[in-house]
Amino acid sequence: MLNKTITKSGTSGYTAPDAGAKNTLLRRLFLLLVLGFSQLTALPLAQAATGVFPDSTFQNLDYGLYWFGYDDNWQKAVPGQSNAYFANNKPTVIYIHGWQNGSTVLKNRETFYRKDAGGPDLDLAHAWLAAGYNVGILYWNQFADEGEVKDAEAKIWTATGPRAMRWRNSSGVYSSGPGKSAGDLLFDQYKANMASYTGSNIRILGHSLGNQMAIVLTKKISDAVSAGTLSSRLLPKRVALLDPFYSNYAKSWLSNRWVGEVCRTYVSELKTKGVIFEAYRSSSVTNTVFVGDANNNLMKMTAFTELKPWYFNSAQQVEKHNSAVWHYLWSFSFNPPLITGTTRQAASASTSDSRISTLMNGTKKLVHDQGAYTKEPSDDNFKEANR
């Protein structure tokens, strides 16, 4: 097993194992590299069924907040207009997707049906809606439609990255985009459409690359609250990082810092503002030495759970990567799982904020123990391990 030494990024330094172990390790890492890149470029997405969104959604630039009802019914949020699927006093959950390579030509967008991503043939918004939640998705899919994941990543942080803010249409053609980063664009959408919110329970979910967007968005909200330009009600109470991805190495467009490093700085600050963070890792795609920064020091700042979706084989890394989303959404339908041999609760979407906060501030991570071979979260138990 690779022994890691901590550097500025938290994950970029290594000490050498013995020769035999090193050769075995390199073979495994090479396999993961091949699997990771080949499968990630083969659409690591959960597509909506054909016809959920009209062609115009993909022919023209379209981004922002959509509210959902049962069975993938939706209505885009428009400032000042009533919305059939939003009430300003309800608890609210908002999902943010990640990299969307090739999705626009196929006219696909992620929704709450995840069967195409290896999940159950269920409406995963149903339990949330039945519990009285507003359920939304913040889309930036046409900006995130890049052949290179780092080009999409840059757009979260800056409008002047390698591909600026170009966006792709359904003919596969790229056009110049706005002069704001995707993070700023989604913050503007959030601020404008949540202005009337009177509730006190907002949860943000970010998958893969979208976890960075969730962190950046929450930081922008927090800064606006501190500046007195936004109601404190709009600060998310809880942020879930679902199989999070951070690319390796310093970025010129981020003052020569690693994205994982900046995310750690933001999360550390946001925790002092009362934001609760949970994280779930479900695959190797996001954290091999060649593909992504494991950002272990950030995971230690969260209520961190290692999911083991062993109903997929070792070659099905994309399915494992996507499982973090539908497993989390589905887990809201069931009682919180337990820590094996105890009556203490482990982490899931249905675990209370106070319990997630306790796990976040503890010294242990949770590792999938029982129920790892079944997709349904109802039989899950977890064991504690050192972080």
Rank of each mutant, 00 (worst) to 15 (best):
N23V: 15
N88W: 02
H126I: 01
V78C: 03
S9C: 05
A130K: 15
F53W: 11
N73P: 00
R28G: 13
D123S: 10
H97F: 09
L138F: 12
R28N: 14
V105Y: 00
D71L: 03
I6M: 03
Q75Y: 04
Y95P: 03
A87N: 13
W74P: 01
G98V: 10
V93Q: 02
L129F: 13
L138E: 07
F68W: 04
N141F: 09
N141Q: 09
K22E: 13
A144I: 02
T41I: 15
W140G: 11
V52S: 08
L65A: 04
A117C: 11
N108M: 12
N89H: 15
I137P: 08
L25K: 05
L35N: 07
Q100T: 15
L43T: 08
G132M: 14
F68G: 03
G132H: 15
A48V: 01
L124I: 13
W128A: 12
R27G: 04
Y63M: 02
Q100D: 06
A127R: 14
F30V: 14
V135Y: 03
T7R: 08
N23S: 12
G119K: 14
S12T: 06
N23A: 14
Q59K: 11
T7D: 07
N108H: 11
H126K: 15
A42M: 06
A84R: 14
G69V: 11
Q59H: 07
L29F: 05
N73E: 12
W67M: 09
D62R: 11
I96Y: 10
T104V: 15
V52F: 07
I137H: 02
R114S: 03
L40D: 12
L129S: 04
V78P: 06
R109V: 06
A125K: 11
S56M: 03
Y95N: 07
W74L: 12
R27M: 10
S12W: 04
